[in-house]
Write a protein that binds this DNA or RNA. Sequence first.
RNA 1: UACCCCGUGGUGUAAUCGGUAGCACAGCAGGUUUUGGUCCUGUUGGUUCCUGGUUCGAGUCCAGGCGGGGUAACCA
Length: 569
Amino acid sequence: MSQLPEPEAPSDFIRDRIRADLQSGRVTQVVTRFPPEPNGYLHIGHAKAITLSFSVAKEFGGRCNLRMDDTNPAAEDQEYVDAIKEDVRWLGFDWDALYYAADYFDQIYAWAEQLVEKGLAYVDDQHADAIAASRGTLTAPGTNSPFRDRPVAENLRLLREMKAGEWKDGEKVLRAKIDMAHPNLNMRDPVMYRIRKMHHQRTGDRWCIYPMYDWAHGQCDSIEGITHSLCTLEFEHHRPLYEWFCDSLGIYKPQQIEFARLNVEYMLTSKRKLLLLVEGKHVDGWDDPRMPTLRGLRRRGYPPEALVAFCKHVGVAKVNGTHEIGLLEFFVRDWLNKNALRRMAVLDPLKLVIENWPVGASGQPHVEMVSAQNNPEDPNAGAREVPFSGELLIERSDFMENPPKDFFRLAPGREVRLRFGYFVKCTSVDKDAQGHVTAVRCTYDPATKGGNAPDGRKVKATIHWVSAAHAIDAEVRLYDHLFTSPDPASADGGDFLRLLNPQSERIVRGRLEPSLGSARGGERFQFERLAYFVCDAKDSRPGAPVFHRTVALKDGWQKAQKKGDGKPA
RNA sequence: UACCCCGUGGUGUAAUCGGUAGCACAGCAGGUUUUGGUCCUGUUGGUUCCUGGUUCGAGUCCAGGCGGGGUAACCA
C-alpha cells in the first residue's frame, strides 16, 4: 500500500518526522496508539492526544490502536475502560485494534527474566523509602543498593518467588541495573516490578507483581509494532529509559515523540484537581457541564466535531502555552451556526400587549400561526409554525423606557419587527407601584405580516418573542467559566478552589416556544439572539425538558455598551 | 544549584536545500442582513528573547547570555 499523505495533511514537527521516516524507509506503514490509563475520565487534553494519534495514522494511511494502560490495579476499573471507549467513539474516532497492557504481562515477564540473566536487572530488598533516599537528588548522585550485585541465579530465584507470591507487598522489587549516578534520575536503577497482591480488572488474581509504566510502555509499543509513540512532554526524560529497555532486550524500538499538552484558559486538566472538584461537590459529578471532561463537554452541548476541529487547529508543538478559550468557543459556534435549529425562547420575560389585535370569532383570543425558518444557514432545515397572539412575552432587555440613541430595540414610540411576525409600535407602558415596567403596550400593523412593510419602511431591530398563552415553561441552566481566573492551576498556594466562579451556573425558568416541549436529550438549538442550548439528556423528563447553555452568541450590543461605560476616559 | 526541552504580533501556529514573516482567533473600521448572530471587505499589531559570529543574504546555522517549562512515586 502507498502511504502518500493526504494533500491537506498539516505540517508540524511530528508529521515532518514521519514523512522523513517514510522516505528513508525506516517505516513502511505508520502505526500509532492512544494509551490511556483506565483510572479516570477523559478530558479535553486527551482530546488533543486522541485527535493527533488517530489523525496522523489516517493521513498516512496507517493504523491507530486504543490501548488500555492498565499496569496498576490500584486505581483502575472496568467502568473507566467502558467510559474511555465511549468517549473516543463520541469524538468520532475508531481504533483499528483494542489492546490491554495486561494482555502482554506474560511476555513482559519473560523479558524481565532475560534482563536478569543478562545481569541487567536485580532484586532489591530495600523498601520504598530506602530506595528513594539512595536515589540522590537533582544535583547529587545516588548510591548503589547493597543488593545491587546479587548473583544472577539468586536474582532469578527471587524474581520467581516474587511472582509466585512468596513475598509480601513492598518487600522486594525488581530493578534495572543502569547507573545510580546518571544525570537523568529515571536511569538510576528504575523499579521494573513491584509486588501488589491485588485483584486486577482484567487478569484477576493471576498476578501479584505488576510492571511499572517504564517497564511496560515501550514493550507494549514494541509488541504492537508502533512506529511513532506520541506522548506529552513530561515523558521526555523517560525516552532514554524507553530506548534502553528496547535496546537491552534487542527488540523492535519504536520512536517516541513528545509534544506539548493542551492547556485552555479557565480549564483544569489535572485528574487530581478534577477529582477534588467532584469529591468536594463543587460540581455535580464528572459529567457536570462545567467540567472539561469529555462527558462534561458533551452535556454542555459541545459538538465533537467542534472539539476535533479545535484540536486540529491548535496544532502540535513543543512549547507549553495556553489557548484562549475564545478560540475553542469560536469552533463551537462555527459548527452550531451551521447545524443547530433555531428556536425562540424568552429567559427574562416582559409582557407585550398588542392593543389592536383582533378578537377571535368565538370570542376567544385570536391566534395566528406564523412560519419560522429553522435555520437560515441551511435551507434544507425547513420551517415550522409558531403561534402568534395579542399577548406575547419579549426579553426585558429588548425594551428601554429611556433609550440611548444607539439602542435600536423597542421603546415608547418606536417600531420594531417581531421575528417572523409583524411590526409593532410601542404606545405606552404599564407600571407597578414601584414604577417598574410590567408590560409594554403596542399596536401592530396588519400589513407587515411575515415581517415586511409593503410601503418599504424599515425598522432597525428584530426581536424574538413567544406567545404568552402557548409558551411552555422549562428549566434553563446558564453556564459560565468554572473559575474566575483564566489560569486556575497557578492559584496562590495551589488553592484553586478559591477561584471558583460563584456564577458559573445560573438556573432560570424560561418561556419557550411550544415546539421545544418535545425536544429530546442531546438535541442542540440556537435560541435566537441569545445562545446555543442543548436539551440535557440526563435531567430532562417527557414534557419537562431542561436546557443547558452551551455558548452565548456574540453580542455586539453588549460589547459596545461595555466599551462605553466600563473604562474611564 | 544537575540534566532535558523550549523561546515568532494579544493568543496559538506556519515559513521548501538559509533568500528579509503567512494563517486562524481576538481587536478595530465599514458593508450586507427579518438574529446588534452569520456572511463580506478593509485594517492595527512582530527590530522572529538578547548579543556576537558564519554568509552576498539567517526566524532558519554556530557561540554565549537571558527567559520559560519539565524532572527526584514500589503513579501513568
